[in-house]
């Protein structure tokens, strides 16, 4: 009995992981850029939200 990987028959299947990787990568880089550019004072302020009740 020979088993064929049926996903191979899908046209353009290879693009799926590629697209998702790109979406993730761009989002992640954007996130990093924001984090490094973010204002220190604001970060301090947000950090302290749970502490000032």
């Amino acid at each position: 009995m020979k088993f064929r990987n049926y996903l191979e028959t899908m046209t353009g299947i290879g693009i799926y992981p590629l697209i998702s990787l790109l979406i993730f990568f761009i989002f992640f880089v954007g996130c990093l850029i924001y984090v490094f550019k973010a204002d220190n004072n604001k970060m301090e302020e947000m950090k302290n939200i749970p502490l000032d009740e």
Binding site: C31, M43, N48, L51
Partner: peptide
């Protein structure tokens, strides 16, 4: 306060992704 708020942002998005 939490050690790094920046780290929490990066770690939130990458974790759920």
């Amino acid at each position: 306060p939490i050690y790094s708020y920046r780290l929490s942002i990066v770690h939130f998005w990458s974790l759920i992704f």
